[in-house]
Design a protein around this nucleic acid. Structure first.
Lengths: 184, 184
DNA sequence: TGAGTAGGTTCGTTCAACAGACCTTCGTTC
DNA sequence: GAACGAAGGTCTGTTGAACGAACCTACTCA
């Protein structure tokens, strides 16, 4: 971790987890991966993160087994980053932290609402479906903008794609509309 | 946040939460507060954090409404830091992240085991009691060293006190044994 | 031939983390 | 009443990561 010093002296699983996802930007990168972002330039556009930092974070998340780097096309070869099964298990802590932030560090209500894709019920505080009584896996979670969303905030194609209702882990490439410049 | 740049452009509750507890050390300070640490010097001894950084983090956690700074004695006045109600709600994300770290970033099993104080059952993955079927509030959670604990790791009085089975939020002062130096 | 796209690397600047010394106030002990 | 210790800090110089901007390398398409 940062500055040549780590949490190694902490005999604690939380400290171990924070060595993987506790650095600046890491958790937001994982969140974007849940939202369907897979490409370097899409992370870059959505996060406003320095390129070199993104390179480093993606590398360490791959090394930690949270993300998987795979070519999604040949000639020229282009890579995408997907959550591994360990990475997908980060859904619970990320959801819990987002809900905390919604209640205690935001105004204007939830920016994003998560619901059970099967029945449409909004997830409860721990990420279960109150209607079906099950803990909902991320691929069965539907996300859509909530009442607190600020639609004018970002207008890049990635942000617009993420603002459409869709399932977690569903790649956003298919949601990005072709840039239809107004003629003139 | 760090380096004059923050997550303000992220229209996301997770980013808001990370502005409060996402900086280096912040989440470990909150964890220690759950474990019963309340005094400046006890945080210092247990975390091995630079004093100036601890001062700053405690200040911002108080400003964010996560901790409360209160004198616990007069003459000389001494302060303790306690979790507010908003701070206590961080239990869910912290527990979820610790469980993730236990499964994916540790070896040797759980370092700390959390159970329902009422019935003794170990908490499930989201922090509920499988026996009683309720989400367990932190003050009803019992913590004790687990099979993966490394007892030789730290031997300061604070670490020893935290190694004793006790309820979350129970101040550790009463668990710290008087320093009984061997005579000679 | 030139422009564009994807996924980076390199470099100089800034600013927080770090380690350790120092400070203040009060109580206790010799 | 001088010395010492505890608690809760502040101050200072050094280091190293984050930042921003420019540059690089394939490759494709018009």
């Amino acid at each position: 971790m940062a500055l040549g010093m780590d949490y190694a002296q902490q005999d604690c699983s939380l400290a171990r987890a924070l060595e993987v996802v506790g650095e600046r930007w890491s958790m937001l990168i994982v969140r974007d991966a849940f939202y369907g972002v897979r490409r370097f330039n899409d992370f870059l556009a959505h996060l406003n993160i320095p390129r070199a930092v993104l390179t480093g974070r993606l590398r360490s998340l791959v090394a930690a087994g949270v993300l998987d780097k795979e070519p999604y096309q040949q000639s020229p070869v282009r890579y995408g980053y997907n959550l591994t099964s360990a990475g997908r298990e980060l859904w619970l802590p990320i959801y819990a932290l987002a809900r905390w932030g919604e209640r205690h560090a935001s105004e204007g209500g939830a920016r994003t609402v998560f619901s059970h894709a099967t029945c449409g019920t909004r997830l409860d505080i721990v990420g279960s479906c109150p209607t079906c009584g099950v803990l909902v896996a991320p691929q069965d979670v539907m996300m859509r903008p909530g009442p607190g969303a600020v639609s004018e905030m970002r207008q890049d194609p990635v942000s617009r794609a993420l603002g459409r209702p869709h399932r977690l882990l569903e790649p956003i490439e298919q949601l990005i509309e072709p840039t239809t410049e107004p003629v003139g």
